[in-house]
Computed example of a mutant assay.
Amino acid sequence: MLNKKYPFDPSLKHHFIIAFGLAIWIFVFLYFTEPLDVSEFQKSEKLIYLPLYGLLGAFCYLVFLPIQNYIHKKNDQNWFVKSEILFFLIFILVSIVIARIFYLYVIVLGEQNPYTLWYHLKTVLIPAFSTILPIIIFGRFAFGKYKIKQTEAQKIEIKGEGNYEGLRLFFKDVVCIQSSDNYVEVFYLSGTELKKSLIRNKLSVLADEFPQLLRTHRSYLINPFHFSQWKTANSKLFVLLSHHIEVPVSRTYQKDVKTVLNSTTI
């Protein structure tokens, strides 16, 4: 359960939107509900201290973003349920510390008998988190789902003749496709790892469906994006692709292949 993938959007822009919304929500909530000693503030004090509470909430959210991005990259651009739980634990801890410092050294500085830490937690901070966390959870989940839809829309689908055959990939992750009797073997990247998958289809069908793939041989289609260098052996021409994949270039396709690949390396 903890290792299950969780919707996540790494866009800093969207996280700043969440932080801004959080700041507005905290201010509005405190201003109109006046929990505890907020009602004791004069109107001018409300307009000073309550926006600061909102800014503190936004700051507590944003301060974790560098750590969040580090965890995301360390997990090969994946985000899991345990990653989301870790985020909220750190957010709550940091928020409690900063809110307590703000209360002691700004709100009640110089006054006698401030709230004890336990009373402050029980009557102010914990109720506040019960209204704040749902906003953050919803915002993060909604942006994560939106990111997934955007990502899926950018993928291509290499279909097979069977009902359940096929691959959904980013075009840039397709390295090459090789014909194998009534099947094609798709070489593609998953993260930094090279993988291959056998699909029942014809190379000619895929060549028509994906004209951005380059025909080098009656048995091969390549993605020009992965071209590395030329190679000649025994008077035959080959192209070297990423991950040391070697693909032959037949005389029939040499002129077109050289034109396309030489233009991509200029």
Rank of each mutant, 00 (worst) to 15 (best):
K73V: 07
H217Y: 07
Q42F: 13
Y253V: 00
E45D: 10
L2C: 13
I90Y: 10
N78D: 07
F20L: 05
I136A: 00
S204N: 11
H243M: 11
T123A: 08
G54L: 05
I71E: 05
F138N: 07
Q254I: 01
Y105D: 12
K195S: 13
Q68Y: 14
K195C: 09
S180K: 02
N78C: 07
F171I: 03
L47D: 13
I107V: 08
K155R: 02
S242A: 10
Y105A: 13
W25A: 13
Y253I: 01
I135H: 03
I101M: 08
T259F: 07
E246D: 15
K145A: 13
F32E: 03
V186L: 00
A233D: 14
A207I: 05
I98T: 15
I101F: 07
G110N: 04
L65Y: 13
N262T: 08
K196M: 12
I48F: 12
L30G: 06
K145F: 12
N223C: 00
E152R: 12
I266P: 05
V63P: 12
P224A: 03
T265F: 05
L125Q: 15
A142H: 11
T259A: 11
V97D: 03
E209I: 04
F88I: 02
K145G: 13
K13M: 15
P224H: 06
N234D: 10
V97F: 05
Q154L: 14
L30Y: 05
F225L: 08
Q42V: 14
I135S: 01
I266M: 03
T216P: 09
V38R: 02
V94Q: 07
M1W: 11
A153E: 11
Y61W: 11
F210Q: 03
N69K: 11
Y220F: 11
K202R: 10
L36F: 08
T33L: 06
Q154E: 13
L104C: 00
I158K: 01
G54I: 00
G57L: 08
L30K: 02
H243A: 14
H244P: 10
S228W: 10
E246M: 15
E45G: 11
I136Q: 00
N262C: 10
N182K: 00
G57A: 02
V108P: 12
V186G: 00
L2K: 14
S250G: 00
Q178P: 09
L52R: 08
H72P: 04
V175Q: 02
C60M: 07
L22P: 02
V175K: 01
S179V: 08
D9V: 06
L117A: 07
A128P: 01
C60L: 08
V184F: 04
V94F: 06
T192K: 12
W230L: 02
N69G: 09
K5H: 07
N113C: 11
F170P: 05
I90V: 08
F143M: 01
I222T: 09
Q42L: 14
V175R: 04
Y188M: 06
L62W: 14
F80Q: 02
L167N: 07
V249H: 05
A142D: 13
S11H: 14
L221W: 09
L261W: 04
H15S: 15
L237N: 03
K155M: 00
V260A: 06
D173A: 04
L237V: 08
F20I: 10
F138D: 06
I71M: 06
L198C: 06
I266W: 01
S130Y: 06
G160L: 00
Q68A: 12
K73W: 13
V205I: 10
A99T: 15
V249I: 01
L50C: 09
F129P: 14
F102T: 04
K172R: 00
G57H: 09
